[in-house]
Nucleic acid binder design. Structure first.
Lengths: 333, 333
DNA sequence: AAACAGCGTGTAAACGTGTTCTCCAAGGTT
DNA sequence: AACCTTGGAGAACACGTTTACACGCTGTTT
């Protein structure tokens, strides 16, 4: 189809090796020839065929990212940060979505291996140990989120849920709240367990008795049910911490439909700082876990693993930060 | 690194061509050999190298999608639909994000060309005519959204804003509303103009006088200002149509903070059916433009262009559908 | 019996780069 | 004058796959 490196070489009157050396900045070419090659490349509009390049060179300079669900508001910003950073580092990036389906998870892993990626960021929990072994066997670097411990080719990023939750509890305490309920997510999900544990620990650290704890589903509906239940409680908690923003929205809807005012009658907090928190009415007090930064850190972590001859998996900590909105306020008993 | 097709061929005791024929289902292979090859492939865990495959085959079976902003809630569902459909059709897909930056738009186009894609879905308006010419010159199929007219290698998808707006107006009319305000978006944006025009036309078709029309910014803040302004009007409109959901959220916040109740005192509608509409309080009456379906249609459109020897660009219409929420209700004067 | 068709399979040539090795010329250094 | 250094030519080969074509076998037709 398009032009090849040979066409360029012929047009300049040099060998293909010289053109290749110029394009890959190997610096073995004289200034005059160098400039001439570059201008000719631009003039002809030559583009190196990426497949040929990846095939010929040992290093594919490619990374993959596997997410469970692009529509889940957690992921777009992570992806954005990841794409930006890998691009900066000179990697090609491929994205796969699994939609929580183990079969598609497997397909995604296969795609990564067929692409011969240097590393892959795994952002879904439906990932069988067999697939991980397979990737490791092929010396493909991996990063996980909140999951497996780090080892040779595997690095892990841990979001500091504990700190985020602790900040909320301290803030609510300062505002005068003493009875603080918690609406949890799915029992088996690691990131959820972590938040629940952190809640219990932080409460005790502030000298408060944890509870009541209700169980949601990480979705709007679960939050709604929890909100309705809390509205009926007696004595009623003065504040509700939800495991994530979406749950918080549901909780708020439940409380409001039971006739309570937020934050005058009861305070509500979320987690994750999605757009929802910002645009919800009232805006939600939440915790920013810097998802774009997280994406960048994942890329850096993979890059570190890829470029080392003897990779040592590490653990990274991602900080969390309280963001106060209009859904919470002082409590005067 | 990994196994090659030669290793498989050797293990089975056939030629590489035979293995290739089996893997590509060309059906020129005897049943016995066919099965033997397949089981050996599985046993050894062989994966065809994608770069070699793309290089050797004339058709790369690859498509690209360029979006301006993954974080913009419009895109994730479109991307999801696009990925799902292209996967079904057997294409590899690559995604580029431009972040509204013309330089990155160019980079994205270059990436697509270097990948030798069959077609690319362009979902950003910052796209120079030069780039489009370049793509067309390389016989790369293109789809646009609401933009250029269709021609040879270019198909266009038009969202039926007119129908969506008309459905809202008719619905509000049935509910007894006669004074319906409109909060517009950015003046130059095509999709916004279309909605404004449709509003005026639909109002006249129902025998109503259009107006007042306020100008927002497609964001929360613009909606908020408009909401506050509308609350002060006398006579006050009984319903407000916002150009999109985010604006509607702002409008509602403005109205509520001025002491009005929704929908008892005034009805509000949005557009796009983002998650915001669903989780907002009250939930917003809006229009679903079926973004995942849109993504699928884009993939189908590109596939049609790619697989035809003499491509004829078409225009496609994407339907819109009213979704009634709690932000609107009957009006009894 | 010769010709033919069809099927299954092997052979070898692409595909467009990157890599590497040999070789060479011109200029500069001892 | 013998010896480096630099910039580059030229050619071959690797990369792993696809694919056009050739070949041989079997069974059928003329």
């Amino acid at each position: 189809m398009g032009l090849t490196i040979r066409d360029v070489a012929k047009a300049v009157g040099v060998s293909t090796a010289t053109v290749s050396n110029v394009l890959n900045k190997r610096g073995k070419v004289g200034r005059r020839t160098h400039d001439l090659v570059l201008s000719t490349v631009k003039r002809l509009g030559y583009l190196p065929n990426i497949h040929a390049r990846r095939l010929a060179s040992r290093d594919t300079r490619t990374m993959g990212i596997i997410v469970s669900d692009i529509v889940n508001p957690f992921f777009p910003e992570v992806i954005m940060g990841f794409l930006a950073r890998t691009r900066q580092l000179g990697y090609e990036t491929i994205l796969s979505e699994t939609n929580y389906d183990p079969r598609r998870t497997q397909e995604a892993a296969i795609r990564m291996m067929a692409h011969n990626v240097g590393g892959v960021a795994i952002m879904t929990s439906e990932f069988s140990a067999r697939l991980i072994d397979e990737l490791t066997r092929r010396k493909i670097a991996i990063t996980f989120l909140d999951l497996a411990p780090a080892r040779g080719y595997v690095s892990t990023l841990r979001i500091d849920y504990a700190s985020g939750i602790e900040q909320i509890v301290k803030y609510l305490y300062q505002q005068g709240h003493r009875e603080i309920a918690f609406v949890a997510g799915r029992p088996r999900l690691k990131s959820n367990e972590a938040r629940l544990e952190a809640y219990e620990r932080s409460m005790q650290a502030s000298g408060l008795k944890p509870g009541p704890v209700l169980h949601g589903d990480l979705r709007f509906e679960g939050g709604l049910a929890a909100g309705l239940a809390i509205a009926q409680m007696s004595p009623r908690p003065t504040a509700v911490m939800a495991v994530n923003d979406l749950t918080a929205v549901g909780v708020m809807k439940g409380l409001v439909s039971a006739g309570l005012r937020i934050p005058q009658d009861i305070s509500v907090t979320g987690f994750d700082k999605t757009r929802l928190a910002e645009y919800s009415n009232p805006s939600i007090t939440t915790v920013d876990i810097h998802r774009d930064l997280l994406g960048q850190m994942v890329a850096d972590a993979l890059h570190a693993l890829c470029s080392s001859p003897n990779p040592q998996g590490r653990e990274y900590e991602v900080s969390a930060e309280l963001v106060v909105g209009d859904s919470s306020g002082p409590w005067n008993s």
